[in-house]
């Protein structure tokens, strides 16, 4: 109940943002929200299934490029372009997920990285379509369907991004609290046992990877028409590394935490990189500090006080000492 109130309140506050902030700041905020969505998508794998991906940029890049190409070459409304971009990315993610889930642990991480680098290389290989190192510019935001065009203005686009972020969050939350989500938790805690209980864990891992790529590609697809251009850097391993750090700093396995992590870091980066060359150093230090001092991340810190008050009646430490005697 309380959580719902907080979410509803933040949504309302978010909606007021374009009315009060200057134009330039709004650009930063939109990009930060998109990155928040991107970080949340990775959390499905990292936080809920303990599948560490070092190549989540592949999802972002695929979404961005496919949407860019669709909007550029077909005369389709923006929302349709985004939906098709995500759909194409999801289809490509299926074989990627199939191959990556053949392995676990470090090799899984390396395979995801390899696919992102493959995307990066393909951009250069197919210059005619992808624009090579120059990227693609001049991506439009066509109006429609039904004459809808609010997203053509910057503040309108902000609302589109908020809508996608909140919608994706609600969907992801439904997923992680579903029976499917319970199986993911089982895989995270003990995959061998989960298999021995009768679950085809490989299929579940494939499904969650495809979902994570799907939501990640939505972030990429939203970025493209906003920025108006795409560049091969979207596939670069630094993007993958940064988003992984945002998930961990934000609080893996909480959805909200990575969203906050993504938003905070984008905003901080944009501010600090203007005033100091030391930004990467600061970024690194913050990461190390969180891993060592607050492994539950930003969201863990924010909710700690609330959580420590929650005591399960009749359970807990008491149950340890006074054993049940039948």
């Amino acid at each position: 109940m309380r959580e719902r109130l907080v979410i509803a309140l933040s949504a309302v506050l978010l909606c007021l943002v374009p009315l009060v902030v200057p134009n330039y700041t709004l650009t930063l905020i939109v990009e930060a929200l998109i990155f928040g969505l991107f970080a949340m998508s990775l959390d499905l794998m990292v936080g809920y299934t303990r599948l560490h991906s070092f190549g989540h940029a592949a999802a972002y890049g695929m979404g961005a490029y496919s949407t860019a190409l669709i909007l550029l070459h077909f005369n389709l409304p923006l929302p349709i372009g985004i939906i098709l971009g995500v759909a194409i990315s999801v289809v490509i993610a299926i074989p990627i997920a199939w191959i990556c889930t053949k392995s676990t642990g470090v090799s899984f991480a390396m395979l995801t990285l390899a696919f992102a680098q493959l995307g990066y290389a393909m951009i250069f290989r197919f210059k005619d379509i992808s624009g090579g190192s120059d990227g693609i510019g001049g991506i439009p935001r066509p109006a429609g369907p039904f004459g809808i065009d609010f997203f053509q203005s910057k503040s309108g686009y902000f609302y589109l991004v908020v809508f996608c972020l909140v919608g994706s969050y609600l969907l992801c939350r439904a997923i992680v609290t579903s029976p499917f989500g319970a199986v993911l938790t089982g895989i995270r805690e003990n995959e061998a046992k989960t298999r021995a209980l009768g679950y085809n864990t490989r299929a579940y891992k494939m499904a969650v990877v495809v979902m994570a790529y799907g939501f990640g590609s939505l972030a990429g697809a939203l970025y493209t028409p906003f920025a108006g251009f795409v560049a091969p850097e979207l596939f670069f391993w630094l993007v993958s590394g940064r988003v992984l750090i945002m998930v961990i700093v934000g609080g893996a396995g909480t959805l909200i935490g990575p969203i906050l992590g993504g938003i905070c870091f984008m905003l901080l980066e944009q501010q600090l990189s203007e005033v100091t060359e030391l930004w990467p150093l600061i970024f690194g230090s913050i990461f190390i500090a969180f891993v060592m001092l607050a492994p539950d991340g930003i969201w863990g810190l924010l909710t700690k006080r609330f959580r420590s008050k929650q005591v399960v009646p009749g359970d807990g430490e008491d149950g340890e000492t006074s054993r049940a005697t039948p």
Binding site: I175, S178, P179, F180, G181, A182, V183, G186, L197
Partner: peptide
């Protein structure tokens, strides 16, 4: 609960 769910026909449901 995770063990019990394994026997349900809809055990895979994400929604």
């Amino acid at each position: 609960r995770i063990a019990a769910q394994a026997q349900h026909a809809d055990r895979w449901r994400p929604l």
